[in-house]
Amino acid sequence: MGGTFLFDGQPVPFEDGQTILQAARAAGRYIPHLCWHPDFPPHGSCKLCIVKVGGRHVSSCALPARDGMEVESNTPEINGERRALLQMLFVEGNHFCPSCEKSGNCQLQALAYELDMSSARFAHFFPDRPVDASHPDVLLDFNRCIFCELCVRASRDVDGKGVFALTDRGIHKHLVVNAESGRLADTDFAVTDRAADICPVGVILRKRVGFAVPIGERKYDRASISTVAMEKGE
């Protein structure tokens, strides 16, 4: 069956079961996202992929495409809202790009450049989030967590381990690991897990390979996140 919908005025074909975001990607149209990943079912928490359909805001990662839909995405209004969502993510955590090992490979940072975010706008929360360096191969820096739950999902659904989970709620929500001690070293996490290389920001970092590629020569230093996503499918 499938059909066609209008994406920012241009026709985009879709197959049955495809979401707006999937169909748009397949047609070479980029929609910003953080918690969505091509290998996982939609999660719908970051809300960066919001678009307007018939005047209503929806999450394009989760809403199935329908024939004749009119979707607005790359508009000043929607991009303004996306920028504000990014600002929210920046102020609720502790993000210091210049000293972060993930700089240049970080999707949060890359999207901020993509959407011309030039200030944090809101007051910073400066939360107290201790790091966990207990594991021999991996460092966890919770300061940068954006709660996309990709590590939670990868560990649970791919690795079959359930190493990560979220606890508490609201602004106090935070990541925990599967050990009474709260230490990653006391879980069965391995650096070869799918969860080890899924983090879109800089929470899960491999030890002993930091800065192997200099900042300035990394993925999103060389090309914008929309270009990388469309050309390499990442």
């Binding site: 719908g44 928490s45 970051c46 809300k47 960066l48 969502l85 929210m88 993510l89 102020v91 609720e92 809101f122 007051a123 929360f125 954006i146 709660f147 979220l166 508490d168 709620r169 609201g170 602004i171 106090h172 929500k173």
Partner: peptide, 21 residues
């Protein structure tokens, strides 16, 4: 609302806390 937000989505988790501020 800031106390009761589940914290799942960005706008509600951060937005209710900012609004409270």
């Amino acid at each position: 609302f800031a106390h009761e937000s589940c914290g799942f989505c960005t706008p509600c988790r951060v937005g209710t806390a900012l609004l409270k501020g």
